[in-house]
Design a protein around this nucleic acid. Structure first.
Lengths: 209, 209
DNA sequence: AACCACATACCAACCAGTCGGTATGCTGTC
DNA sequence: GACAGCATACCGACTGGTTGGTATGTGGTT
């Protein structure tokens, strides 16, 4: 009859805290002590679970990826039958979660990779992996839209999925610069308009540029 | 007949060096000693010209803004008569400069603001200022396109100009994640397609969504 | 008694920023 | 045109605090 000693263990508390602290201060400016303080654990616990700060950042990226995967896979728009409704539903959902503090709705992976892409190959690879995995879920719906409509456009589903991510990542940067979500919401409106033009208003259907 | 003692003074060497070093390693991970080493000056010179590391970052943002202003105001597409040609010329130019090392074509302002938006108000404000100033130059051409075509769309020139910046900033993040400019070029292709759909292919012309 | 999950104490390296000092101008006065 | 008076530009050793990381201890579970 093992009773849980703590409600959550130190590793989970550190990973949860890292999402907030790193998104707020950035990776390099976040010290191990900052993380421990935010998580309410000691430095001993930190280095018991992670062999270095870098190792922790890689785990944090994975933790964020898992959280995002859960968030999007259980969102309501996923149940829509039409793939275009799912794609536009994704964009609308991304817009709807732009609320509150900037550090609460921005992407840890984008933040991390900006700081670590040249100096820290392991972190860069982890960010690439989880960003690409997320883009792949969007790509699947795009492929389906194209198939249903018999489209053979001058662009690939993969490139459009990455484009969507680039708009989102860029909108987070502008939200940080302007200290609020309004500008990001406007960007997502333009993104939605592009998708509508590509898949709805563009009567020609087949293009070859 | 005063002969220049040095070809460039310490302040200019520090500002030039900061563009490369900060874009490569990030702001927090760049030490004052890193900057001095890269610029070939001493720490004494650094603190003679800048009262703190933060003060230097603000100056660096201004230096980057001035460099960009020079680059874009003298680019060939500026001489085109048609505002839509200038707008698309801008996008094509942004694509054409995606060459070589990632740290050479990415935006210092986007990098800086990601790290400093919560912790450093002065840096955040400087980044916002120079990003917005650049977007305003693009907005001027958009306004002109709309005027020439008598468009009254459901979006503003300002929001479209910021959207263009968000795509560019986001494409830099993906370029960092994937360690090369190819993905960024693909994003700019999608951006160009959106502008073409808005201003050329969208025969309706006037929309109100 | 072995092991796991942490806690405490500590360290060497590094950090931003300081300070006393030097070299080299400029500017006004005689 | 010589020289005082002062500002600007720069040097590099130094400091106190912080950093990532380590070594060792401890209490509960098996």
């Amino acid at each position: 009859m093992a009773v849980a000693k703590t409600l959550t263990d130190a590793k989970t508390k550190l990973l949860d805290a890292s999402l907030q602290v790193i998104r707020c201060k950035g990776y390099a400016a976040t010290s191990v002590d900052d993380l421990c303080r935010a998580a309410g654990v000691t430095k001993g616990a930190f280095f018991h679970h992670f062999k270095s700060k870098e190792d922790m950042a890689v785990a944090s990226a994975a933790h964020f990826g898992a959280m995002a995967e859960g968030l999007f896979s259980h969102a309501g728009y996923r149940d829509l039958a039409d793939p275009l409704d799912r794609l536009l539903g994704y964009v609308d959902f991304r817009k709807s979660i732009l609320r509150g503090e900037v550090s609460h709705f921005t992407c840890l992976l984008g933040t991390l990779v900006q700081e670590a892409y040249e100096t820290n190959p392991a972190i860069r690879a982890a960010c690439d992996q989880y960003i690409s995995a997320h883009a792949a879920t969007v790509e699947a719906d795009i492929v389906e839209v194209m198939r249903v409509r018999g489209m053979v456009p001058g662009w690939t589903a993969s490139s459009l999925a990455l484009y969507i991510q680039s708009v989102l990542q860029g909108s987070f940067i502008l939200a940080k610069a302007k200290h609020g979500p309004a500008v990001a919401a406007d960007c997502i409106d333009h993104l939605r308009r592009y998708l509508e033009l590509l898949f709805i208003n563009n009567k020609g259907g087949l293009r070859n540029d």
